[in-house]
Design a protein around this nucleic acid. Structure first.
Length: 428
RNA sequence: GUGGGCGUAGCUCAGUUGGUUAGAGCGCCAGGUUGUGGUCCUGGAGGUCGCGGGUUCGACCCCCGUCGCUCACCCCA
């Protein structure tokens, strides 16, 4: 009659983020929000799920993510929906739907879902922060977006990261290049690695990204993207590279850089962290997607953006430094120790908190010693002692918990002046 | 989807060739004479040894299965 409760746990590849780790997340997201506003971005929140077509059209129906990693499901109304595997497609869908005035600059923070086997730095639900700019193909925007990410990493305290960059060309010159590459690969198909001998034709660009020696050998002698993009794209790319150089943002040209989503055109980039060993060292990436809005049914609109994985950024940060991020002040101002037995703390705390003072307390009428321990553990700056004596005298005792000197670390204050006294002590 | 390693208290881990009531440290709770934390001392709570089956007189230990964690391949953040 009383069934054994099941031991539920977070699904495979997902994680609960609780303290003290959640403080790192809070810091990182707050810093990103701050950075985004400084660059003129507004926050965009879009649904976690979309019509599956948004992602199929966006990231490409043949892409690895779309074919075998998406969480696709049918809702009760028979609609075929998918959990977002990345941020860009939804934001661009929102742009197409609402047609905000351009340039539209939006930032986001969102979970992303991909059905893969989890491993270090790879999860079925991970979280991304990113930005998108729609409505201009000015190379200055490419530079701004890349630079923002670059500066953000530095503000996070990262030091060992690199920017890899490439130009994919626009649809026409890229198409011509793919044809060229396909012909080339066709002539050398038997020399490719085992896997690509079979599938090189479906997406020739992927072969460029293959890490197997066989494929590298073949493609090294073959045509590379930057040499075959049209004059306009070349000019655009040069402008981007030039400005990045002027700003001191160190970009490494990587002609093999081909990202996993099909929507990219022209400027394409990736950030890798050297502190992360193994295959999961990409902490962020992005690029231009000048055809995406159109593919999602909108007017032709240029766009560019980047996304970064929060988990990987924090892993990188932890690998580079022992010190946690402490950009936000999240220490308690005071801890109320109430031994009156009549719960005087409730009213006192309401006064303190209403005045903007961060305050907490113990519950359950615990002993003074126990409450003092709790005060110490809480990290609060001051303990506000309120016992029978203080209650009778109409005052409180304020104790500086950082001081070791008993005599000088305590003072009394009239009960009515608690807020102002604490405020004054805090500004010292 | 394929393969390797690992599942013992909240956490980090011991547990001798299979042998009685499964241990430690940290953390948590309570005390150390009646109002003071961070050190110290004492005590306490907390575990169906991931789960299911098998071998055995006897299983945390051996075997099989399963689930989970983890790492790698693939791909990506």
């Amino acid at each position: 009659m009383n069934p054994q409760p099941q031991n539920f746990r977070a699904p495979v590849g997902t994680h609960d983020v609780i303290g003290p780790d959640s403080a790192q997340w809070e810091n990182l997201i707050a810093l990103f929000a701050e950075t985004a506003y400084r660059y003129g971005f507004e926050l965009a929140i879009s649904p976690l799920f979309e019509d599956v077509g948004v992602f199929n059209r966006g990231i490409g129906e043949n892409s690895e993510v779309a074919t075998k990693e998406m969480y696709v499901f049918e809702d009760r109304g028979g609609r075929t929906l998918a959990l977002r595997p990345e941020g860009t497609a939804s934001v661009v869908r929102a742009f197409v739907q609402h047609q905000p005035t351009t340039p539209w600059k939006a930032w986001y923070v969102t979970p992303a879902f991909r059905y893969e086997r989890p491993q270090a730095g790879r999860y079925r639900q991970h979280h991304q922060i990113g930005v998108e700019v729609l409505g201009t193909d000015d190379p200055a925007v490419d530079v701004e977006v890349i630079t923002m990410a670059w500066r953000f990493f530095a503000a996070l305290g990262l030091t060992r990261y690199r920017l890899l960059i490439n130009s994919m060309g626009h649809d026409e010159c890229r198409g011509a290049y793919v044809k060229l590459l396909r012909d080339f690969l066709g002539a050398h198909a038997s020399e490719l690695c085992e896997d690509h001998q079979k599938v090189w034709s479906e997406n020739p660009l992927r072969v460029l990204d293959c890490k197997k020696p066989a494929c590298i050998d073949v493609t090294t002698g073959g045509p590379m993207l930057p040499d075959h993009i049209c004059d306009d794209c070349r000019t655009h790319f040069s402008a981007v590279l030039g400005s990045l150089h002027d700003l001191g943002v160190e970009a490494t040209l990587n002609p093999r850089l081909v990202r996993g989503f099909d929507y990219y055109t022209r400027t394409t980039f990736e950030f890798v962290a050297d502190a992360l060993d193994g295959a999961q060292n990409a902490i962020g990436g992005g690029g231009r997607y000048d055809k995406l809005a159109e593919q999602l049914g909108g007017k032709p609109t240029s766009g560019i953006g980047f996304g970064c994985g929060i988990e990987r950024l924090l892993l990188t940060r932890a690998a580079e430094s022992d010190r946690p991020l402490e950009l936000l002040n999240r220490t308690l101002d005071c801890f109320v120790v109430d031994t009156t037995g009549v719960d005087s703390a409730t009213v006192l705390l309401d006064e303190l908190r209403s005045a903007g003072i961060a305050a907490d307390r113990a519950y359950d009428n615990r002993s003074m010693k126990s409450q003092m321990k709790a005060a110490d553990r809480s990290g609060a700056r001051f303990a506000v002692l309120l016992g029978p004596q203080e209650l009778a005298a109409g005052e409180v005792t304020i104790r500086d918990l950082r001081s070791e000197d008993f005599a000088q670390s305590q003072q009394t204050a009239p009960r009515n002046d608690v807020v102002t006294t604490i405020s004054n002590l805090l500004t010292k």
